[in-house]
Amino acid sequence: MKKNKCTEDITRKQAIKKIGKYTALTALGTFLILSPKKAQAASPEPPGDGF
C-alpha cells in the first residue's frame, strides 16, 4: 500500500487528543441546542389558554 506524501503521520496519542477535543465541543454544542429549559421557553403556549 502506498502512502500519500501530502499527509502527516500522527501518533495514536495525538489522534485521541484531537478526537477528545471534537467530542467535548460536540457534546457541549448539543447540550446547549437541546437544553430543555430553552426548548420549553421557545415553544408556543398551548391553545385555549388565552384568558
Rank of each mutant, 00 (worst) to 15 (best):
C6Y: 12
T30Y: 09
A39W: 05
I33P: 03
S43V: 03
A15K: 15
R12N: 13
T30K: 06
K21I: 15
G48F: 02
E8N: 10
Q14P: 00
K13Q: 14
K17G: 04
K5M: 13
F51P: 13
F51D: 15
A41E: 12
C6K: 08
T7K: 11
T11W: 01
D9K: 13
Q40D: 10
K17R: 06
P46M: 04
P44L: 00
K21D: 06
A39H: 03
P36D: 13
S43T: 01
A42C: 03
P46W: 02
E45D: 06
I10A: 04
P47S: 01
K13M: 09
P44A: 00
K17V: 02
N4G: 02
G48L: 03
I10R: 14
A42K: 14
P44W: 00
P36M: 06
E8V: 10
P47V: 00
Q40G: 04
P44I: 01
C6Q: 13
P44Y: 00
K3P: 07
K18T: 08
Q40W: 08
K37G: 08
G20L: 05
T30E: 06
P44R: 00
A15C: 06
A42M: 11
T23C: 07
G29C: 12
D49P: 00
I33S: 05
K38N: 14
D9V: 13
G20P: 03
K18P: 01
G20N: 11
L25D: 02
I19N: 08
P47L: 01
S43Q: 07
Q40H: 05
G48P: 02
R12P: 10
P36E: 09
S35N: 15
K37A: 12
E8A: 10
Q14L: 01
A42D: 13
A41V: 08
D49C: 12
P46N: 02
